[in-house]
Amino acid sequence: MFVKLRIGLALLCVAVGLGLMVPFAYLGVKTGLYQPRRIRRWCNGLILRALGFRVHVTGEISKSRPLLVAANHVSWTDVMVLGSFNDVAFIAKSEMARWPLIGGLTRLQGCIFVERDRKRKSGEQANEIASRLASGDAMVLFAEGTTGDGNLLLPFKSTLFGAANLALAEGGADKVFIQPVAISYTRLHGLPMGRQHRAIAAWIGDQDLVPHIKDLLAEGAIDVEVHFGEPLEFSAGSSRKETARAVEEHVRAMMQQALRDPKR
C-alpha cells in the first residue's frame, strides 16, 4: 500500500510540475525569445526528486570552449542527472526521441538525435553537432555508445569522437576540449550498493522503459555521483583512438573511486 501511494504521489508531482514548466520551456525553444535554461534544470530536478535521487558532484564542467563532455552511460536518468545542474545538450540515438516523456524532455534540452544507420543523414547531423560546439554549447556524448550495468565501463567508441574533428573542420576552432565525466550510482537507502544492487538503477539494452520507471519510483532513495575530470585538448593532429583511450581511462578511474568510497 505504501509503495503504491509513493508511486502515485511521485507521478502526480511530476505531472503537475511538468504541466506548469514544460510549456514555457517549449516556447523558449521554438521562438528563440529567451533561453529556457533555468526551466530545464527545474524539470530535471523535479523528476530526480520524484524518483528519490540525491546528486553529489565532484569538480565542475569546464568553462573552455568548444567543449565535448564524454561520459559513461548507465541509465536514461543520466540525462536528468547531468541536466539538473548544468546547461548542456546531448548527443543521443534517434530511438530516444520516441520514448514517452523522456523523448519530449530531451528535445527541450536541445538534444541532437543521431540516426546511425542512415548514412544520408549522417552529414547533416555531423554538421549540426559541429555548429553547436562551435557556437559554445557544451555537448554531452555517451562515449560507450550504449548503457552499461554501472559496475564496469565499456570500451569508448573512437568513432563517436568524430564530433571533435568536425568542430575543428567546420567551426574554425584550432582545438576542442574533451572533458571526461563519470556517473556512478552508489547508495541505496543510504547504504553502499553492491554489484547486484546497481541493476536497480541501470537501464540496459531493450529493457522496457515504463516498468523500469515504476521500479525506480517504488524503490527511491538512490545516491548518484558525478565526477568531472580535467579536460583534454584535441587538435588537428590528435588521434581519435588515443584520445578515446585516454578519456576512457580517466572516466574508469573516477568511476572506480566513486564505487569504492561513495559519498554520503
Rank of each mutant, 00 (worst) to 15 (best):
S135F: 05
L133W: 13
W99R: 02
F113C: 04
L133V: 09
S122C: 05
G110T: 13
I129E: 03
G136M: 08
T146R: 13
M139D: 06
G136D: 12
I102N: 00
E124L: 13
G123C: 04
L101T: 09
L108M: 13
Q109V: 03
R132L: 07
E144V: 12
A134K: 12
L101M: 14
A126K: 11
L141F: 04
V114D: 07
K119T: 10
S122N: 02
E115L: 06
I129G: 02
F113A: 02
R120C: 04
R120M: 10
G136H: 07
R116A: 02
S135T: 14
G136S: 11
R132G: 04
F142M: 05
L133N: 12
V114K: 11
E95N: 01
G123T: 14
C111Q: 06
A143L: 06
V114R: 12
E124D: 05
T106C: 09
R118Y: 05
L105C: 04
E115K: 15
L141K: 09
M96D: 02
A138V: 12
Q109P: 01
L101D: 04
E95Y: 06
R118Q: 15
K119G: 01
W99F: 11
Q125S: 09
E124S: 12
A134Y: 07
P100C: 08
E95L: 02
C111T: 15
D117H: 13
R116I: 09
E115W: 03
N127P: 01
R107F: 09
V114N: 06
C111D: 06
E95H: 03
E128V: 14
R107P: 00
W99Y: 04
R116S: 09
S131R: 15
A138K: 13
L141G: 04
C111M: 14
E144C: 11
V114Q: 06
R118C: 01
S122W: 08
I112F: 07
S135H: 11
A130D: 02
A126Q: 13
G136F: 10
S131M: 12
T106G: 03
M139Q: 10
A143W: 10
A130W: 06
D117P: 00
K119M: 12
E144H: 02
Q125C: 03
E124W: 01
